Measured scan of single mutants.
Amino acid sequence: RLHIEVEGTELMKKLVEEAKRRNLNVRAKVENGKWIIEID
C-alpha cells in the first residue's frame, strides 16, 4: 500500500488517473487541507 500526501488538486488528479489506468485501488480524501491518497 502506498500512502501519499499531496498539496494541489491537479497533481492529485494525475496520480488518480494514472493509478486507475493501471487498475490499482485508489482512495483519496482531504485531511488538514492536503489530499491523502492511498493506492493498493
Rank of each mutant, 00 (worst) to 15 (best):
R1C: 15
R1N: 10
R1P: 11
R1T: 13
R1Y: 13
R1W: 14
L2N: 07
L2R: 10
L2D: 07
L2S: 06
L2G: 06
L2V: 13
L2F: 09
L2T: 09
H3R: 15
H3W: 12
H3V: 15
H3K: 13
H3T: 15
H3A: 12
H3G: 08
H3M: 14
H3L: 14
I4K: 05
I4E: 05
I4T: 06
I4H: 06
I4G: 04
I4R: 05
I4Q: 06
I4D: 04
I4S: 05
I4Y: 11
I4F: 13
I4L: 11
I4A: 05
I4M: 09
E5M: 11
E5W: 12
E5F: 10
E5N: 07
E5A: 08
E5V: 15
V6D: 04
V6E: 03
V6T: 07
V6N: 05
V6G: 09
V6M: 07
V6Y: 07
V6Q: 04
V6F: 08
E7M: 12
E7F: 15
E7H: 13
E7R: 11
E7V: 13
E7D: 11
E7S: 12
E7A: 11
G8T: 15
G8P: 05
G8S: 15
G8V: 11
G8N: 15
G8M: 14
G8W: 14
T9N: 11
T9A: 13
T9D: 14
T9S: 11
T9C: 15
T9W: 15
T9V: 13
T9H: 13
T9R: 09
T9I: 14
E10F: 02
E10Y: 01
E10M: 04
E10D: 13
E10V: 04
E10K: 08
E10A: 06
E10G: 07
E10T: 04
L11V: 10
L11S: 06
L11D: 09
L11K: 08
L11G: 06
L11R: 09
L11I: 11
L11N: 12
M12D: 02
M12L: 10
M12G: 04
M12R: 01
M12H: 01
M12Y: 05
M12I: 10
M12Q: 02
M12W: 05
M12C: 15
M12P: 02
M12T: 03
K13F: 06
K13V: 11
K13E: 13
K13T: 10
K13R: 14
K13H: 11
K13N: 11
K13P: 02
K13L: 14
K13I: 13
K14E: 10
K14W: 13
K14I: 13
K14H: 10
K14A: 13
K14S: 11
K14Q: 12
K14M: 12
K14L: 13
K14R: 11
L15R: 00
L15G: 00
L15N: 00
L15M: 08
L15A: 03
L15Q: 01
L15Y: 07
L15K: 00
L15D: 01
L15I: 15
V16K: 04
V16A: 03
V16I: 12
V16P: 00
V16N: 02
V16T: 03
V16Y: 08
V16L: 12
V16C: 12
V16E: 05
E17I: 09
E17T: 06
E17K: 08
E17A: 12
E17H: 06
E17W: 04
E17P: 00
E17F: 05
E17D: 12
E18V: 09
E18Y: 08
E18N: 08
E18M: 13
E18G: 06
E18S: 08
E18F: 07
E18R: 06
E18H: 07
E18K: 07
A19T: 03
A19V: 06
A19R: 00
A19L: 14
A19M: 13
A19P: 00
A19N: 01
K20A: 08
K20Q: 09
K20M: 14
K20V: 12
K20R: 14
K20E: 09
K20L: 14
K20T: 10
K20F: 08
K20S: 06
K20I: 14
K20W: 04
R21L: 10
R21D: 06
R21V: 06
R21Y: 03
R21P: 00
R21T: 08
R21E: 08
R22M: 12
R22G: 05
R22V: 09
R22A: 12
R22W: 03
R22D: 06
R22Q: 12
R22P: 02
R22E: 07
R22H: 15
R22Y: 06
R22N: 13
N23I: 04
N23M: 03
N23W: 03
N23S: 09
N23V: 01
N23K: 07
N23T: 01
N23G: 15
N23D: 07
N23H: 12
N23Y: 05
L24A: 05
L24T: 02
L24E: 03
L24V: 07
L24D: 02
L24I: 09
L24W: 03
N25D: 11
N25Q: 12
N25G: 09
N25Y: 02
N25R: 12
V26H: 00
V26Y: 03
V26A: 04
V26I: 07
V26R: 00
V26N: 00
V26E: 02
V26P: 08
V26T: 01
V26W: 05
V26Q: 00
V26F: 04
V26S: 01
R27H: 14
R27I: 15
R27L: 11
R27Y: 08
R27A: 11
R27G: 04
R27P: 00
R27M: 10
R27S: 15
R27N: 13
A28K: 02
A28F: 10
A28L: 14
A28D: 02
A28I: 15
A28N: 03
A28S: 06
A28Y: 10
A28G: 03
A28W: 07
A28T: 13
K29N: 08
K29P: 00
K29H: 15
K29E: 05
K29R: 15
K29C: 12
K29D: 05
K29Q: 08
K29S: 12
K29F: 15
K29I: 12
V30Q: 15
V30N: 14
V30T: 10
V30W: 15
V30P: 07
V30L: 15
V30H: 15
E31D: 07
E31N: 06
E31G: 03
E31L: 09
E31V: 14
E31T: 04
E31F: 02
E31K: 07
E31W: 01
E31I: 14
E31R: 08
N32D: 12
N32S: 03
N32W: 00
N32R: 01
N32Y: 03
N32Q: 02
N32H: 04
G33S: 02
G33Q: 03
G33W: 02
G33V: 00
G33E: 08
G33H: 02
G33R: 00
K34H: 13
K34G: 06
K34Q: 10
K34F: 10
K34W: 12
K34L: 05
K34M: 11
K34P: 00
K34T: 05
K34R: 13
K34A: 05
K34D: 07
K34N: 07
K34I: 13
W35T: 05
W35M: 08
W35E: 02
W35D: 02
W35V: 08
W35I: 12
W35R: 02
I36M: 03
I36N: 00
I36S: 01
I36V: 13
I36H: 04
I36T: 04
I36D: 03
I36K: 00
I37A: 00
I37R: 00
I37P: 02
I37G: 01
I37W: 02
I37T: 02
I37L: 04
E38Y: 10
E38G: 00
E38P: 00
E38W: 11
E38Q: 05
I39T: 02
I39P: 00
I39A: 01
I39L: 07
I39Y: 04
I39N: 00
I39R: 00
I39D: 01
I39M: 06
I39G: 01
D40G: 10
D40E: 13
D40Y: 14
D40S: 14
D40N: 09
D40W: 15
D40I: 14
D40A: 09
